[in-house]
Structure formats: C-alpha cells, structure tokens
Computed example of a mutant assay.
Amino acid sequence: MHELSIATAIIEQADALARADGTEAVSAVTVRVGELSGVVPDALDFAFEVARDGTALASARLVVEQVPAQAWCAPCAEEFAVGMPPFFWCPRCDQPSQDLRSGRELEITGIEPILGSA
C-alpha cells in the first residue's frame, strides 16, 4: 500500500508549511488527487489517519478533492473525459489525443490551522 508513504509525505510537508506560517496545530489538509495518479482516495484517507498519530497533525483530517482525467482534442478544440481505464480517443471525432490536461495531480492545496494556534 504505497498510500501510507504518500500520507507520511503529506503530513511531513503540511507540518513544514504550517510551521513556516507560524501555525502550531492543523485541523485539515486538503489535497488534489487525479484520477490517473495511481492513488486510491479511500486508502489514502485511511493511511493518513494511521500516519498522523504522534505528529503535530494528530487531530487533522484529510480532505481529498478528486480530479477527473481530461484530455484535449486539437481537431475539435475541446476537452473530453478520459475515464478509467484511460481511453485517449476523442468521442466526437474519433481521433487519438496525446494532450492530457488533468488527472495526474497529487498536491497539497490547503492547510487549515486550528483556530488560535497561529
């Protein structure tokens, strides 16, 4: 379960970012997880709960924003859903796409301090 190592890295990075802002306690960490990132959101949430024990984020919750995979079709000048398993053929013109616009994200987008901790 590689989500445990990802959760540990999220906790370490969120803790460092919070401390840099003068925050001592974090109530929530928001992450964006792309559909094609290889990360299972439920497994990441479980791993986060396990990994946070004994850290400065011990009471923090993980908020996962799922990002659908979208590709760009140049001939149609439109984005289309890639789906899972991924299918990179435009449903409108039946041409292949090599331009993935979203779906591979794995990033921290927000850290919410516990009120009164900053």
Rank of each mutant, 00 (worst) to 15 (best):
L4E: 00
L4R: 00
L4V: 01
S5P: 00
T8Y: 11
A9C: 09
A9Y: 04
A9P: 03
A9E: 15
I10A: 03
I10V: 11
I11W: 00
E12D: 14
Q13N: 11
Q13Y: 07
A14N: 09
A16F: 02
A16C: 05
A18F: 04
A20L: 09
A20E: 15
T23F: 05
E24R: 12
E24C: 09
A25Y: 03
A25E: 13
V26G: 10
S27Q: 10
V29Q: 08
V29Y: 07
V29E: 02
T30C: 09
T30I: 10
T30L: 10
V31W: 11
R32F: 09
R32P: 08
V33Y: 07
G34T: 09
G34E: 01
G34N: 03
E35F: 02
E35Q: 08
E35S: 03
S37M: 05
G38Q: 04
G38L: 05
G38P: 01
G38M: 01
V39P: 00
P41M: 07
P41C: 04
P41F: 04
D42S: 07
L44C: 06
L44I: 00
D45K: 01
F46C: 02
F46P: 00
F48M: 06
F48K: 04
F48W: 05
E49A: 08
E49Q: 12
V50P: 02
R52A: 10
R52W: 11
R52G: 12
D53L: 14
L57R: 13
L57D: 07
A58V: 15
A58I: 13
A58T: 15
A58M: 15
R61P: 11
